[in-house]
């Protein structure tokens, strides 16, 4: 009977945490759709989450595309279909790898920093100080990051996709001999606007997941340096897992 009680305890605690996270997101969205919006804070976050992630996205996109070009060429060569390398690389990137890898890179680079920043503000009472000034910390700390995530992720994903496609072309076309016209021509034939939209929808939702989880973990960080470091680790792990889980749900149910 003890294990049943333990199981109940764990379930209740899990539900409690999910409920708190849900309320946190609802409050963030409510603040995001009601004025005043802090535009300078939003721009700063777009700079931080978006612009400052472009190098890592560029590198990840280039190498992902190159690997896809290499692997795809050898696989398609077995079936005599190397002409379809362009669509294969493009569809893999646009529908799956672009949104997912961009999201994981942003989680590692910007998400962890978001959690640490908010966590430190929490433990050093900066958030309490803001509340005591009669200011809503959500408007200054959470909403700008949420909006910046929603704006930046699709743009970063687009950069990832384009760089990846050219990376695939560099390996498949320049090094392995697939013609430029074949590579890009077949891509234009096979890639539909729905595929592009699928990638955009995914990256939009990943933008919400990353900022939501990372901000929540920072906002509810425990005491001291240990509390912040624990929150940062949890934020990166949870948002990465949620990105992959949500990717599967969107792929299987919605498209």
């Amino acid at each position: 009977m003890i294990w049943i009680s333990k199981l109940g305890e764990i379930t209740l605690s899990l539900l409690n945490r999910i409920g708190r996270m849900g309320l946190f997101l609802a409050k963030a969205f409510l603040c995001a759709i009601t004025p005043p919006l802090k535009f300078s804070w939003i721009i700063k976050q777009i700079w931080f989450i978006g612009f400052q992630s472009t190098l890592v996205i560029f590198l990840t996109g280039a190498f992902s595309g190159m690997v896809l070009g290499l692997q795809g060429f050898h696989t398609l060569n077995r079936f005599g279909s190397t002409a379809l390398l362009g669509p294969m690389v493009a569809l893999s990137l646009i529908k799956e790898l672009g949104p997912v890898l961009s999201a994981l890179m942003v989680t590692g680079r910007a998400g962890s920093a978001m959690t640490a920043e908010i966590g430190i503000m929490r433990t050093t009472e900066q958030i309490d100080a803001m509340e005591l000034m009669g200011l809503n910390p959500f408007r200054y700390l959470i909403v700008p990051k949420l909006i910046a995530g929603i704006i930046a992720l699709p743009l970063l994903t687009a950069i990832f996709d384009v760089v990846g496609i050219f990376g695939g072309y560099f390996v498949g076309g320049k090094l392995l001999g697939v013609g430029e016209g074949t590579y890009f021509g077949e891509m234009a034939n096979y890639v539909r606007i729905e595929d592009v939209l699928e990638g955009i929808y995914k990256s939009l939702s990943f933008g919400v997941i990353i900022t939501w989880v990372c901000c929540y973990k920072g906002y509810s960080a425990g005491f001291g340096a240990e509390g912040v470091s624990k929150a940062t680790t949890q934020a990166v792990v949870l948002s990465s897992v949620l990105v992959l889980f949500w990717d599967y749900i969107m792929t299987s149910l919605l498209f």
Binding site: I120, M121, T124, E125, Q126, D128, A129, L132
Partner: peptide, 11 residues
Amino acid sequence: GFLFQNGALFT
């Protein structure tokens, strides 16, 4: 006005 123990300045 509240003066926090550690100041709670925005770093």
